[in-house]
């Protein structure tokens, strides 16, 4: 998928709408180790802006990449601390 980072875990929140993609991403990140990248698969179009905003405003996480597919929005979030 992306050669620049390895995906430690994938979170499937397809179908879920606001605020669940962000809330579940936060819970999934808590279970990862520092440096791990979480892949989030969502169908909520608002998740593009929301996960970006969440990552920017939250300590210890970094948005690595976002991809807008045909039906699925993919987000890659690294745990930094």
């Amino acid at each position: 998928m992306n050669a620049e980072f390895d995906i430690a875990e994938t979170l499937d929140v397809k179908g879920a709408s606001c605020p669940m993609p962000v809330v579940k991403t936060k819970s999934a990140i808590d279970d990862l180790a520092e440096g791990d990248v979480l892949e989030v698969l969502a169908t909520d179009p608002g998740s593009m802006s929301d996960i970006d905003g969440w990552a920017a405003g939250t300590a210890g996480v970094e948005l690595v990449d976002q991809e807008e597919g045909d039906d699925v929005y993919k987000h890659y979030v690294r745990k930094t601390e």
Partner: peptide
Amino acid sequence: LILASTAAAFG
């Protein structure tokens, strides 16, 4: 509830 859970996700 939406704002509370989201703010909690922000820490």
